[in-house]
């Protein structure tokens, strides 16, 4: 669509026309500012905990476990030097042989969400599926953090309109 629009603008006399090929999906997925009716809804990228521990593929589980526990976590995300998510170490993996490396015991390809997912909608979805949290990454796969459904303030129930005449 934007390709046709770009050519049409040029035919209308615009001298310098650019086409943002990845479009607003890419812009929002990277947590960049937005305007519009839904712009103020909190997003998972804003609420994601950025202090979630990370480690590299070759890191030894024993050292990783120590660091993760000291930080008060029970999960560690395996990333490369660009912070692209490669895997996840949950409790079972963190309990593995201390001499093993992260790559050998990690869970491959954990599910991720984009930072622009609406927090409340995502929390509802996770609750329905009994999932506590989900990783948030940019569209380039770089780790943003961990979004937990409990981090969303539940919206107060809508007040029922009072009946005519009251009590």
């Amino acid at each position: 669509m934007s390709a046709r629009a770009a050519w049409r603008l040029e035919s209308l006399g615009f001298g310098e026309v650019y086409r943002y090929t990845a479009g607003k999906a890419d812009w929002f997925a990277n947590g960049l500012p937005r305007e519009g009716r839904r712009a103020t809804l909190p997003r998972v990228g804003e609420l994601a905990r950025r202090d979630i521990p990370t480690c590299g593929l070759q890191d030894r589980i024993g050292a990783v476990r120590e660091r993760v526990r000291a930080a008060g976590w029970d999960v560690c995300i395996v990333v490369n030097d660009r912070r692209v998510v490669l895997g996840r170490l949950r409790q079972g993996a963190l309990a593995a042989d201390p001499g093993s490396i992260a790559e050998a015991v990690m869970e491959e390809g954990p599910t991720t969400y984009r930072p622009d997912a609406v927090a409340e909608e995502t929390a509802r979805y996770l609750t329905e599926r009994n999932v506590a949290g989900v990783l948030v990454t940019t569209s380039d796969g770089e780790l943003v953090g961990l979004f937990r459904r409990d981090d969303v303030e539940p919206r107060p129930p809508r007040a029922e309109p009072a009946g005519e005449g009251g009590a």
Binding site: M1, S2, A5, A6, R8, L9, L12, G13, F14, G15, E16, V17, Y18, R19, Y20, T21, A22, G23, K24, A25, D26, W27
Partner: peptide
């Protein structure tokens, strides 16, 4: 998209067009 609807835009300024994604 026509000459009329784009009249408020400046033809002499760089213009970036976008849609949702790679469509």
């Amino acid at each position: 998209l026509s000459a009329e609807t784009t009249a408020p835009l400046r033809r002499d300024r760089p213009t970036i067009v976008y849609c949702h994604d790679f469509q």
